[in-house]
Design a protein around this nucleic acid. Sequence first.
DNA 1: CAACTGTGATATTACATATATCACAGTTAT
DNA 2: ATAACTGTGATATATGTAATATCACAGTTG
Lengths: 121, 121
Amino acid sequence: MFEIDPKSRTPVYVQIKEQIMLFVQLGLLKPDEQLPSIRELSKQLGINVNTVKRAFSDLEIEGIIYTVAGRGCFISDDAFSNSKIKENALRDLQDSIKSSIAKGISKNDILVLVDELFKEG
Amino acid sequence: MFEIDPKSRTPVYVQIKEQIMLFVQLGLLKPDEQLPSIRELSKQLGINVNTVKRAFSDLEIEGIIYTVAGRGCFISDDAFSNSKIKENALRDLQDSIKSSIAKGISKNDILVLVDELFKEG
DNA sequence: CAACTGTGATATTACATATATCACAGTTAT
DNA sequence: ATAACTGTGATATATGTAATATCACAGTTG
């Protein structure tokens, strides 16, 4: 279910965070569903336990998941009720688009790209 | 003309690169126009010479500017003829949009944002 | 009790960013 | 020729982040 791209410039723990958030968005992970344990997931992905722990801790702070001591981590009921994440995402996206405009990307380039991304997903 | 946001999470040398590329896009910097010297610019911005040097060296490798020994740095005639920059920009933008989708940003959110950015600029 | 969960702390390695200095070489104007 | 400017190159240092490697501790489950 999970996959990591070691070549990517985005940190591994961020890749994990975003995959989990995406799976929640897509409905592949539902409220109160249990996530793989950090040891299990670290084995699967061939990375260190601490790296997975970092991702899960972040997600818990952001209210996406909750943990039960000794049992595991689960998707929150209100995983995306908190608007802070969406606000931050919008701000980051704005920076990225501005940056791309500086490099010669046109409005049409962006619209085509957006269409493609929402066609596939 | 140039401005740096020290609070921003994007590295200072990247901010400089992107401002120069943006100014070229906007026609504020034209082919063969001379840039401020790295010492001058570092004074203006209150940052180290090496940081400006890093930005200029990057831009030269990317073909955006060229340098004449002892004279200074200038905008290339073919600053944006090289498609590598646009390709990289598109790839980066794709990653950013995917990331924002994972955080609950809708297609409409993006379209509204794009409209705003192209209205102002 | 054994085997599993997450937690917490520590140490280490590697890399990126940014700074501080210094010496060197080419250009320009006086 | 000299002074004052350009960029170049190297070195050293500090800081923060990312990732790894270990270890000990505590709660849960069968």
